[in-house]
Design a protein around this nucleic acid. Structure first.
Lengths: 333, 333
DNA sequence: CTGAAAGCGCTAACAG
DNA sequence: CTGTTAGCGCTTTCAG
């Protein structure tokens, strides 16, 4: 198993100094003959340069750090793919940490990334880590906050988000167009994106003369909560004497849970209830589910590009949502 | 933005030597008073230790490398979550690279991981990188190959896989039990797992007195190919005068494509054709899709544990598949 | 074009 | 208990 071969071993084997080996590998000016000899030694000894040591000189590594809330959500998954794609074309690797939606885990993870001296960081978690990322940005590590805007960005601290109010309006308009009037909402927690989407939905509905009473907005922390929420929403409509004719899910990762809860209760979609959700996903087409989609892959790409390009100022990019209309909200009228 | 603060800065600020600071941080024997002074300097200067430099001493970093074929496949996604979970509980980060199913990209990525001196490596790609991983294992970096067995493993080179022949047999038995007799297969490429599953299926079918002619096994490279394959399978059955009554998909990432192709062609599942696939996934329950599942999350955990525990010998773990029976193959008879 | 020497930020003996 | 002295593996002046 033995000691790993170092640049010194190669130098000795090729009869040159370590400086020369370094130059050969990094493309400095070296005599042809010397270079050949060095490369020979490199292959013979199977020398693999130590990227860690190299990074010490650069002051930072070449990897891109990513702290993600929930890999299994279609949004974050595509985001990740966008990031990875850009990283790959820039000879970077991605250092990855998943908070599994546990709040506060992210602070430790961001810190770990900082210790790893990542080239830049993409963060999709809450505001708890903002203090840290702000400091990182000030010290020259570009940080990109995804899925929300940043209160007071400092130079090097960027944000990539969706026009969530617009997304809500898009949903409202489509529902109105489809002749639905009694909508219930399943949202997830108090995160800005959720609040904004609900607000946009409410405003859009109001514009169409439709109400969205407080009690028609439920919150689900997990799959089970979503099932409960759907039950409650349906029951309340029944009790009110005006049954729900539409259910909106404002969080992509809850789509399966909400849709399945509906199906399990024998609700006919869209005959009884229209179903509208966030984030398009592979099965949506076949299931005929209408969704308001965000360009998650592209957002990932832009995030990684911001890390690579490291612009001086704070950049704030807001993407526009798009409606992908299918069958689950019925015919437009 | 300025220079990053180093251990030297902290030492100067606290009026001690760098060695003492190092000891304070890593928990050596230091006088209470000194320690307090050092910690004060650490917080005041917002010192963040450089994990890169630290790793130089350890000879390797504490991160776990993962080279994955295709993040969007349910199997690899859950595998990744299992790995990440174990990494997190071991204060490790995960360094990640996606080959996007491009063959040969993995060699470069494995090499990059080696340069990063990862603590260990989990590889889910083809045999092209085996030469490299074998060498890494010999030099003390545990490598875990997932989703296939390794021809001649060296110490430190492990494998985690599924009993694919068993999976094929499980499928065959279920189909036979459901009274299906004319099955078609959509598989993906010539990877060992695919070949083995098809072989197991064939043997299982034979045991039940059912044939699986060569032409009933199609190969799809991508979603479009899957659609074509389904079309061809259906047409061939028609031409033969004996229409297909079951379609098996041996690759989890093709499930959407194959299922959707069936639906798009107006095929009734399971009335006309039974549908059976590999790898359970969130939507399967609601869609009533029957699947042969592998414990992907657990496999990820074991893979990461092998990296962390780094056993001397080569470990080969074969997991057993499990049938998750739902509606898509009809009633059992 | 190439080598010697001085570090990068940190840890690990070894004295004291 | 703490400072001094060597390095870890590599890059980078600076001479020659």
């Amino acid at each position: 198993m033995g000691r790993r071969v170092t640049i010194g071993d190669v130098a000795a084997h090729a009869g040159v100094s370590t400086a020369t080996v370094s130059r050969v590998i990094n493309g400095g000016t070296v005599a042809e003959a010397t270079a050949t000899r060095v490369w020979e030694a490199v292959t013979r000894l199977e020398y693999t340069p130590n990227a860690l040591t190299r990074s010490i000189f650069a002051g930072r590594s070449s990897t891109i750090g990513v702290v993600i809330r929930d890999l299994s959500s279609p949004f974050y998954l595509d985001l990740m793919r966008g990031i990875e794609e850009v990283a790959a074309t820039n000879d970077s690797l991605v250092m990855f940490a998943n908070t599994f939606r546990h709040v506060d885990l992210d602070v430790a993870q961001v810190r770990a990334m900082d210790e790893q001296r990542v080239r830049g960081l993409v963060v999709t978690t809450g505001e708890a880590s903002d203090k840290l990322t702000r400091r990182m940005a000030e010290r020259g590590t570009p940080c990109v906050i995804v899925a929300r805007t940043v209160p007071d960005p400092v130079p090097g601290m960027h944000s990539i988000s969706l026009d969530n109010v617009g997304a809500g309006r898009l949903m409202a308009a489509h529902l109105a167009r489809c002749g639905r009037s009694a909508v219930g909402v399943v949202s997830s927690g108090p995160r800005p994106s959720q609040v904004e989407r609900t607000a946009g939905l409410r405003r859009g509905l109001a514009d169409a003369g439709l109400p969205l009473p407080e009690e028609a907005v439920t919150v689900a922390e997990d799959e089970e909560g979503a099932d409960l929420a759907v039950g409650a929403l349906l029951a309340a409509g029944q009790a009110r004497g005006k049954p729900l004719d539409a259910i909106v899910c404002t969080a992509g990762w809850l789509t399966v849970a909400v849709y399945s809860a509906l199906v399990a209760r024998g609700v006919a979609i869209p005959a009884d209830v229209a179903f509208l959700t966030m984030d398009d996903f592979p099965w949506a087409a076949t299931l005929g589910i209408t969704a308001v989609d965000q360009p998650s892959y592209e957002m990932g790409r832009r995030a990684a590009e911001l890390v690579v390009e490291a612009p001086e100022d704070a950049v704030e990019i807001v993407f526009e949502p798009a409606l992908v209309a299918r069958r689950s909200c019925g015919e437009q009228q």
